[in-house]
Design a protein around this nucleic acid. Sequence first.
DNA 1: CCCTTTAGTTATCATTTGATAACAAAAACA
DNA 2: TGTTTTTGTTATCAAATGATAACTAAAGGG
Lengths: 142, 142
Amino acid sequence: MDNNQLFQKFVAFSAAVHQITNDITKDVKSEALTPLQYKILEYIAVSQPVTLSEVSDCMQMSMPNTSREVKKLSEKGVCTRITDPDDRRKQGITLSAAGEALMNEAFQQIAVRFEQRIAGITAAERKEIEQALDLLQQKVFY
Amino acid sequence: MDNNQLFQKFVAFSAAVHQITNDITKDVKSEALTPLQYKILEYIAVSQPVTLSEVSDCMQMSMPNTSREVKKLSEKGVCTRITDPDDRRKQGITLSAAGEALMNEAFQQIAVRFEQRIAGITAAERKEIEQALDLLQQKVFY
DNA sequence: CCCTTTAGTTATCATTTGATAACAAAAACA
DNA sequence: TGTTTTTGTTATCAAATGATAACTAAAGGG
């Protein structure tokens, strides 16, 4: 039943992460973007270049809906699509300059709030945190 | 600039947690509940008894919308509201028996998937993971 | 060369979610 | 006691998201 205890911790922890990150990213999203669009853009930012299918898979949304939302994003000028010369069905989606700027600004704000949150932490603690992040990402959240 | 590196790790980590938990809880939600309703129920399950205002705060949604969704949940028979005798404006929201059953089933499924994920881990690693979860929850995601 | 599969698009409709105004009742307070 | 604040409700509307069908074009495979 030790397994169950670990699971309890996992659930509580995941809930905490969701809550804190929601809190931190709250009203960061540009007025021009819907929440979904912001999330998609965030995904593009981290994984670019990506294909439509990859966005669809990762965001767990249907191709038609993905197509629609990404189309809106490129109409808003925050991302660019270039047809893959090797397979002209595919397109590489990347952030445009405007998109990069927008996401930089967002991350900037998030960074500020993150730093407030860990303000007054010692160097040793920081080291511990880094190691814990690495460990969990490697063994649980991979 | 060490701060910035830690922040990078934090962002990557949060993204990973979101993705994995989304994956794990995917299609766990009962057919009878919308995603929002499932999240609210999950929150009630963890924090019961809660008031409408607390749900509203925590889920970052307006009181009217919170009222509507919680009303739907109680109409579906998964939660119960009892007026606080000390302050009859407030109501304590808890899971009903059916709600408990539903959430138990959901957690059961999530637990199974979690265990698959950490299958083949040594006792020492398990210990490390537990400590890492505790540390982060205490120092970052509090 | 035909057939199938993969990648993506467009259109349309239903449902969910968000926002706002107008309200009621209990509690707090002056 | 009368007024204000807190807690919640109801109704209504707009916008976002989800689901599905019908389609195009390129690639792959026999």
